[in-house]
Design a protein around this nucleic acid. Structure first.
Length: 268
DNA sequence: CGAATTTGACCAGCGC
DNA sequence: GCGCTGGTCAAATTCG
């Protein structure tokens, strides 16, 4: 009996030790990523401000050349006049990262949509799907969903019109349980507000598994960051300084962890 | 069997 | 007027 208890205690000790070492490893990894992110953020901020300065200078040059001329309309690839929406009335666009193997054009945003058409457009080989809201009998809300030209795993959803029904409903039987982003959202009366939250959330449990939801700004920023990261990786100076920073931080972190473990102080 | 989706036809707007 | 394009309709088909 006593032997059994001792054996159990030893097994528990071993488990505790392995969990401690696992925790330690995860904290180190987390810290490394945090340092990398901080370095990237600071360099990205500097680069962005530098880019803005360059843009300002270019703009000054252009405006001095354009004195007395009429601003040219924005034209598409066929020199056709493109519809320009004022910023305030610009249709809301959200970007949804999906699994590369998932070829459906379904963006789960908490509303029920009925597909009424599909077209292949000139500027994108991927078909564009047309949906209208089916949650209310005469809801004018519509959306178009098309795959991103540059990244097929990203769906671009363009929303037109306002929903004439208030709060987001609970998912109905036609919506798979737990698959809707709205499941994680509180009840929201205003659909634009809902969409803004949707666009900015991107971090719900479901989305971590099925994809990321981004708004236009986040998407553009992500592309910039990705380009910047790839250039930084090629920079040997950056790699060296990053390695030094990581080494310093890990050493400091380990010391702090030992103190915390000895004193049983929980970390944040 | 009803609802949802697919898909070819049709329509409107625009440039030439 | 013609051709091109995006958006919508509606019959056929599929799905639960």
């Amino acid at each position: 009996m006593l032997v059994q208890v001792l054996n159990t205690a030893v097994i528990m000790d071993v488990k505790v030790e392995s969990l401690k070492s696992e925790l330690k490893r995860v904290r180190e990894e987390n810290n490394t990523l945090r340092v990398m992110f901080e370095v990237l953020s600071s360099k990205y901020t500097k680069l962005e401000s530098h880019l803005q300065e360059i843009n300002k200078e270019q703009h000054k040059g252009m405006s001095s050349n354009q004195i007395g001329s009429v601003t040219e309309p924005i034209l598409d690839v066929n020199n056709r006049r493109r519809l320009e929406f004022p910023t305030a009335k610009k249709p809301l666009q959200i970007f949804v990262r999906t699994h590369p193997m998932d070829d459906s054009l379904i963006v789960k945003d908490g509303y029920q949509w009925r597909k009424y058409g599909q077209k292949v457009t000139k500027d994108n080989a991927s078909p564009r799907a047309y949906f209208r809201c089916s949650m209310a009998p005469i809801c004018p809300a519509k959306k178009k969903v098309q795959r991103c030209l540059h990244d097929k795993s990203i769906l671009v959803a363009t929303y037109d019109g306002e929903h004439n029904h208030g709060a987001l409903h609970e998912p109905s039987s036609s919506t798979p349980r737990g698959s809707s982003v709205a499941n994680q959202l509180p009840s929201i009366a205003n659909d634009k507000e809902a969409m803004n939250i949707l666009a900015l959330s991107g971090l719900s449990q479901t989305d971590r598994r099925h994809g990321e939801v981004m708004n236009q700004h986040n998407y553009d920023t992500n592309i910039k960051v990705e380009e910047y990261v790839s250039s930084l990786i090629k920079d040997p100076d950056f790699t060296m300084s990053l390695a030094e920073a990581v080494a310093r931080t890990i050493t400091g972190e380990l010391k702090q962890q030992d103190i915390n473990l000895n004193l049983n102080i929980p970390e944040e």
